[in-house]
Design a protein around this nucleic acid. Structure first.
Lengths: 126, 126
DNA sequence: AGCCCTATGCGACAATTGTCGCAATAGGTA
DNA sequence: TACCTATTGCGACAATTGTCGCATAGGGCT
């Protein structure tokens, strides 16, 4: 099967994704309220970023209740797996991707997700 | 003391740094021979990247034997420490930076360097 | 001294990212 | 229905990165 390579998100893009992994279908306004403070961004800026993320296939936009809401279109585990592999490979030059137990206390992952991640790191291995 | 924040190198920049950590004072030609194949870059491109890295303070250029040679001006451990902290913090949202034993089989580090890294990860912690 | 090859300094251009503002429109409310 | 406010679709511009090519200056060899 074809391995689609996820685009590597920039810092703000990752922040948006994290938010949308927690709560999906948020409006631009809601997203702004959450992430703009951290980056010191205006509403306009956030909207542009959202738009571009849609073009890149990171998000999906859908009208609901009169406003557009956004949802992540890449999975959390899949993307994290990719990022971890890239980091361990390209930056650290490790022979094997680290085991997911290393991330046990990550605020991003539940128990199940951790196992899923472990699996991804093993199989998609390389 | 002032903590100077190292610039985050791009992928090709990191590749150049890795090379120069192994062998310092290489000419643009030598660097090209090493890294260009991986990125499929021309000599010109590599030179531009080197020049820009100097401007950013990642490298230093010095004439030697009639040609310019480049050397890394950021330390390997310092930069890796920064990258690891950023990744564990911003991407993985771990409470504590991982211990360096995790990188024991990194092709980049000797025993001593590993200890040094451990130290950096502990102290500069946060 | 003259020539040739290589290195260097510079300039150029496209794509991506960071960062907004504006004019028009759609929804909700008086 | 008329108005007010929030949303949207666009367009714009600067900085960074990716990606070279060219014209000139330097060194070494004959």
């Amino acid at each position: 099967m074809v391995e689609k390579s996820l685009p590597q998100p920039t810092k703000p893009e990752l922040a948006v994704l994290k938010l949308l992994w927690r709560q999906k279908d948020l409006s631009a306004r809601q997203i702004t309220d959450e992430v703009a403070p951290q980056f010191d961004w205006s509403y306009s800026t956030v909207r542009t970023v959202l738009e571009r993320m849609c073009e890149k296939g990171l998000l999906e936009k859908r009208p609901a209740n009169g406003v557009n809401v956004y949802a992540a279109s890449v999975g959390k585990i899949a993307l994290l797996g990719d990022l971890i592999r890239d980091f361990s490979d390209r930056v650290l030059e490790l022979d094997a991707a680290p085991s997911a137990v290393m991330f046990a206390d990550s605020r991003l992952l539940t128990e199940e997700e951790l196992e899923e991640l472990e699996h991804v790191l093993r199989t998609e291995g390389r």
